[in-house]
């Protein structure tokens, strides 16, 4: 498996190279001029041209790409065109809130979805199953921002139990941190809960119809033991896969959640950068996201070995 892991890790390099080329080319071709944004509305064309020259934006494509690639090869993601701060610093400032939101959302989603999916499968066709599926449909259907505003209105504005917005780092205490994470995690988590619950149910239904499950029941094992130890374990591969895909989807999902709850995360960083054409940030964050996506996929693939002994790499 070590060889497989190393091969997969090595394969990320050309993948990242293609991503780098694609992102750089796309930005080069897209309309927009950060120099005009920096100069402001009253600036003249001469002012803008001077700023463009200072930033090197008047250079040909290959020179700009080569310069960026050379710096990247040395671990330098560049500096923000606007703030002058290194992209690594900006990503570092934003990493904790996004990681915290992603993890909390996954915890909320998985902790609710897997048990609900298992129970729904065990009681297929019953009222519990119908309720779980109805909740799933709601989870899929309600946009994150609608749910987010509803939660803010109820729990932050009306009841005043939780804060409306913002983020408190973990180092400032667990409760302040958690208070700021509850509403965003629930708002974002409901969609993923719905997704994972439906996959869990479907996967469990498939496994529960297998002969070995009937055998386990015939042996007199407790229903709970059959469900968790025999059925859930064998149904885990598609569930883990969908959780992995969920992490990738979360990268997109956090943008809306971070905006509504004013969380200074990477999602907002990249959206702001796109609106201002802050190319180094867009390029840096896209590379980071693609690396995360590749690694999550690798981890998901590796995890199959633990759930299904028939899988070998």
């Amino acid at each position: 498996m070590l060889g497989y892991t190393l091969r997969r890790l090595a394969a990320t390099i050309p993948v990242m190279g293609v991503v780098a080329l694609f992102v750089f080319s796309l930005l080069y071709l897209s309309p927009g001029d950060p120099a005009a944004i920096i100069a402001g509305d009253i600036a003249t064309e001469e002012d803008i041209a001077k700023i463009r020259a200072r930033l090197g934006l008047d250079q040909p494509y290959f020179i700009r790409f080569g310069t960026w690639l050379w710096a990247l090869a040395q671990g330098d993601l560049g500096t923000s065109i606007f703030t002058g701060l290194p992209v690594t610093t900006l990503i570092g400032q934003r990493l904790e809130p996004t990681l915290a939101l992603t993890l909390c959302t996954l915890v909320v989603a998985v902790a609710l979805a897997v048990p609900l999916g298992v129970i729904a499968a065990a009681r297929a066709g019953g009222w519990i199953d119908r309720v779980v599926m109805a909740v799933s449909v709601v989870g899929f259907s309600v946009p994150v921002f609608v749910l987010a505003y509803g939660l803010v209105l109820l729990f932050a504005v009306q009841l005043e139990w939780l804060p409306v917005q913002g983020y408190t780092p973990l180092k400032e205490g667990f409760w302040p941190f958690l208070r700021h994470m509850i509403l965003p995690s629930v708002a974002l988590g409901l969609t993923y809960m719905a997704l994972i619950a439906r996959i869990t149910r479907a996967s469990m239904l498939d496994v529960l119809s297998q002969d070995y499950v009937r055998t386990a029941h015939a042996k007199g094992l407790a229903p709970g033991t059959v469900l968790v130890r025999h059925a859930l374990k064998n149904a885990a591969v598609p569930i883990v896969t969908i959780i992995g895909i969920g992490i990738a989807l979360l990268i997109g999902g956090v943008v809306v959640t971070e905006t509504v709850f004013a969380i200074p995360g990477i999602g907002r960083l990249v959206v702001d950068a796109i609106l201002r054409r802050d190319y180094p940030i867009i390029q840096g964050v896209t590379l980071l996201f693609s690396a995360v996506y590749v690694l999550v996929n690798l981890l998901v693939d590796l995890s199959y070995v633990f759930f299904d002994p028939r899988i070998r790499y």
């Binding site: 505003y149 803010v152 209105l153 932050a156 504005v157 005043e160 804060p163 409306v164 917005q165 913002g166 905006t259 509504v260 709850f261 004013a262 907002r268 702001d272």
Partner: peptide
């Protein structure tokens, strides 16, 4: 200076005294 890009969130934050 706390930059809140979403107007509805900014309104809620002011309403709540944050």
């Amino acid at each position: 200076w706390i930059y809140i890009p979403d107007s509805a969130t900014a309104a809620a934050a002011l309403n709540a005294g944050e």
